[in-house]
Amino acid sequence: MTTEPWSDAPTLVEDLLLLLFQPRSGTIAGENTLFYVLGGAVLADLALGDHLSGADRGRLRSVPGHPPPDGLLRQAWDYLAEKPRGVQTALAAIGPPLRGPALERLIARGDIDQEPRKVLGLFRTTALREGRTGRRARLLADVRQVLVDGVEPQARVAALAALLSASGTLPQFHREIPWTSPVISRAKELEQGDWGADAAAEAVTRTVTATVVNSAIVAITALPRS
């Protein structure tokens, strides 16, 4: 298990990974593009916490003297404190190691459970199933309210919905979030930083988050599909 410091409040990368977890199959949706959106979630979390600046000609940099206390976020902050980085460079550096630690946290919190199984009656393996906290259902309900019911989101929910859209996995949520033209349009608005008046986030935070999300989309689109 990871020994990095982490707070009681889940990070955005944990929330996103929990949403992408598919209880029916025990798998994570969008595995082949996962590290880009998880990296995007970390950068968006830094922006929402005012730990990140995007004022240097579209390059991201850490706000000096204002590191986040969470270990996963701190690693990204330290990386961007060295010098300003392009968003796609940051995503490629920050994203790949995130899946394991984020999943460990979800298991430790009880949001996802591990279930030992045998394959062919011989080989031991571990399956994932939904935990009993109900947090995934609450997150999904928040996103549904924004995308389906037209509720103006809080900034964190707006970023989460935008990243979920960026992952390209929204069609897989059709049972809970109908894949309709209005939903697609609203998701694209969120990707662009159009969060509505109730999303209490400063313009720079929206701009940085929108830049991160759209850079993730560009990177994901360029990847070969399996």
Rank of each mutant, 00 (worst) to 15 (best):
P97F: 02
G58L: 02
L122C: 09
G131K: 08
I28P: 00
G26Y: 00
A55L: 09
L140I: 03
A166D: 01
L20H: 00
A47T: 06
I220M: 07
P97T: 05
A76H: 01
P64R: 04
V204E: 15
N214I: 01
G150A: 02
D198R: 14
P153G: 08
E4G: 04
L38S: 03
E130Q: 15
P10L: 10
I28M: 08
G39D: 05
S226W: 06
L139F: 08
W6M: 08
A222G: 09
D56F: 12
L73S: 05
L170M: 15
W195Y: 05
G65E: 09
A44K: 06
V183T: 12
R135W: 04
E115P: 00
L128I: 08
A41R: 00
S25Y: 02
A197E: 13
F21W: 08
S62L: 00
D78E: 15
G121M: 09
V151Q: 13
R24N: 10
G95N: 06
W179K: 06
L60F: 02
A222N: 07
V213Y: 02
T33W: 00
G95K: 04
L106T: 12
V87Q: 03
W6R: 13
T180L: 12
A161D: 14
D149A: 11
P171G: 04
M1A: 15
T27S: 15
L190H: 01
P178S: 10
R124H: 13
S167F: 02
D113Q: 14
T89R: 02
L20E: 05
V143W: 04
S226P: 15
T180K: 08
T2Q: 12
E176Y: 11
V143A: 03
L164G: 06
D45C: 06
R206T: 08
A108S: 12
I220W: 03
G39L: 09
L190M: 05
P116S: 05
V204H: 15
L12C: 07
G26S: 05
P116T: 02
A219P: 00
P182G: 11
S226E: 13
I107K: 15
G39A: 05
T27C: 07
R24H: 12
L170C: 12
I28N: 00
A203L: 14
P96M: 11
T207P: 00
N214S: 12
A187L: 09
P153R: 04
G193I: 02
G40R: 02
T2F: 08
T180Q: 11
Q88L: 12
V218Y: 01
T126S: 12
A81R: 07
P97D: 09
L17T: 10
E31S: 12
S185M: 13
A219F: 01
L91V: 03
T205C: 10
T2I: 13
L19M: 14
E152R: 07
N32E: 15
W77P: 10
G95H: 01
A76P: 03
D78M: 11
D113K: 10
L16I: 10
R105F: 04
A81I: 02
T169R: 15
P153S: 09
W195G: 04
A199C: 09
V218P: 01
D111S: 11
D198H: 08
G86K: 01
R144L: 11
E115M: 15
L19P: 11
P182Y: 08
G71N: 05
R136K: 11
T125I: 10
D111N: 06
V119S: 09
W6F: 14
V212E: 04
W195F: 09
E176P: 04
L128M: 15
A197V: 12
